[in-house]
């Protein structure tokens, strides 16, 4: 009978109308500013720099510039610290990320050999200052390892274990280098 399909459709919308009052599977809206979604541990927004202990001295970043090179939209800008004689130090003097350009792709996190840059979960970064407010400098980017543990407990624990193992290996190597045995392989550890 013509018109039956329309009636079937009307039945379906009526079911959804009433279902939205009692079935949470149908009524999925979240009232955003009041209630927020629980983000999964893997959720990512923008990068931040991890430090251990001191917010300036404790930065893990050695300003190797790999992330700057690999960043697809080229939103990272790094200038290494120099000592008095002009020699480059393994520490960033300037580390800027333009969040208005950053697309949160996590490539910088993946390529970082020192686990120094990680993805944040802070997504409410709106600002009234379009230019200054969206450029995050070194002090704004630096966040403690405890914070990292807080947002990504599993990943941060794994990273800590890995770093500890690395440190132990380094120490063992250093001990080996101090001993008279020649350690030619140590030069390979030099970072670009």
């Amino acid at each position: 009978m013509p018109g039956f399909g329309i009636i079937k459709g009307l039945k379906e919308t009526a079911r959804n109308f009433f279902g939205s009052y009692h079935d949470p599977g149908r009524f999925v809206t979240i009232q955003y500013p009041e209630e927020k979604r629980e983000h999964h541990e893997n959720y990512r927004s923008f990068p931040f720099l991890v430090y251990d202990g001191d917010p300036v001295k404790g930065l893990r970043c050695v300003s190797c510039k790999i992330c700057e090179k690999e960043c697809p939209p080229q939103c990272i800008y790094i200038v290494p610290e120099q000592d008095g004689s002009g020699k480059l130090l393994k520490f960033p003097r300037i580390f800027d990320i333009d969040v208005s350009v950053c697309m949160g792709c996590q490539i910088c996190v993946e390529v970082c050999p020192f686990d120094s840059i990680k993805m944040d979960q802070e997504f409410e970064v709106s600002t009234a200052d379009r230019f200054g407010g969206l450029i995050l400098n070194r002090s704004k980017l630096a966040k403690s390892n405890e914070y990292y543990h807080q947002i990504r407990p599993a990943e941060a624990t794994a990273v800590d274990a890995q770093l500890a193992a690395e440190r132990e290996r380094q120490q063992a190597k250093a001990a080996a280098a101090k001993s008279p045995a020649p350690a030619a392989a140590a030069t390979r550890e030099k970072k670009p």
Partner: peptide
């Protein structure tokens, strides 16, 4: 409101 509920959303609130 009614259209919202039909579409499984709360409508203006």
């Amino acid at each position: 409101k009614g259209l919202g509920r039909i579409q499984n959303r709360p409508g203006p609130n």
